[in-house]
């Protein structure tokens, strides 16, 4: 029996064809680089805005935390009394530093309850930092390098200004809030590269606020130098010391917690040129025995770690 004709191969071919489908229906035509740039710009600006809002929120909340709480909270962590051998020399240094702090406290008009406690640490790092509860730490390494009293006053005034502006607790609050938000956002991004990208972008935004803090403190510190010594000569010596210390290792300002040391120096020099200070103003030397007080303490090997937490704000 003959098969019906519609089953023949030719007819199948006729009824079933495979026309060419034009390209580009299932894909978007936009250039990938253009889209990419828009996406990067969009994501970076939304992270920056998010961080900005959180910083404002955190500063607002921190404004309601009285300084006395901060002091109570930080007391157990900042007590160095036990760990330090009380030799005559440490007492002398402490007394000298505390006296200096008292002068700066007056110069900066600190509120009544805001008391400053200076701690001297026998360690070689060239650093000083302010932390919660009005505690300021000085390392032996820095004190050894400072050439005169004005430079020392500059460091101390800078740290005390941080405390006056309540930077340590602000910085802690920002760190907690922004860190929390960034980790929530980045964890729901679900991609290792993205997680890094988000947290780096967030951190770089926070750094901008850190640099602003440093600038504010520098400004206030220079103000108090003027009211103590009548001029700001010698203040730049501090930054020359820091520059010497961080030679070649300073990152671009954009990646740094602090403004470039170079810029801080030129800032001071500009200001000193503008002020009417004459050539006759002299720099106050450190006490004669200052170097000797530090020298004799060098027994202890360095055991400090370089880890910093957000509430510790160094120079």
């Amino acid at each position: 029996m003959a098969l019906p004709s519609f089953l023949s191969k030719e007819l199948i071919k006729l009824e079933y064809s495979n026309p060419e489908i034009p390209e580009g229906i299932n894909t978007s035509k936009e250039h990938p680089l253009k889209e990419f740039l828009l996406l990067v710009a969009g994501v970076l600006s939304s992270i920056a805005i998010l961080i900005l809002l959180l910083v404002l929120l955190s500063d607002f909340i921190v404004g309601y935390i009285p300084f006395s709480w901060e002091k109570k909270l930080s007391a157990p962590f900042t007590s160095t009394e036990k760990s330090i051998k009380h030799t005559d020399n440490t007492t002398l240094i402490n007394n000298y530093l505390q006296k200096m702090a008292a002068r700066i406290t007056v110069a900066q008009n600190l509120p009544e309850d805001m008391t400053i406690k200076i701690h001297y640490l026998d360690r070689p790092s060239v650093n000083a930092f302010a932390t919660l509860g009005g505690n300021v730490f000085f390392f032996r390494g820095l004190l050894e390098k400072l050439p005169n009293e004005n430079a020392l006053a500059m460091v101390m005034a800078h740290e005390i200004a941080h405390i006056k502006f309540r930077h340590p607790i602000q910085s802690l609050g920002r760190g907690v809030l922004a860190g929390l938000a960034l980790s929530i956002v980045s964890s729901s991004a679900g991609d290792a590269i993205m997680e890094n990208f988000i947290s780096e972008a967030g951190i770089l935004t926070i750094l901008k606020f850190n640099r602003d803090m440093e600038r504010d403190s520098d400004k206030a510190a220079l103000g108090s130098l003027v009211s103590i010594y009548g001029h700001i000569k010698g203040a730049d010596d501090l930054f020359l010391v820091l520059q010497q210390e961080n030679k070649n290792s300073e990152p671009y300002e954009f990646f740094s917690t602090h403004p470039l040391t170079e810029n801080r120096i030129s800032n001071i020099r500009n200001q000193s040129r503008q002020s009417a200070a004459s050539e006759t103003t002299s720099i106050t030397p450190l006490p004669n025995d200052f170097k000797r007080w530090l020298q004799s303490e060098k027994s202890e090997p360095d055991s400090g770690s370089d880890e910093t937490d957000p509430a510790e704000i160094n120079i």
């Binding site: 889209e35 996406l39 969009g42 994501v43 991004a189 590269i193 993205m194």
Partner: peptide, 10 residues
């Protein structure tokens, strides 16, 4: 992949 994960944020 990077572009895609940026896109999943927005």
């Amino acid at each position: 992949r990077f572009a895609a994960s940026l896109r999943t944020l927005i």
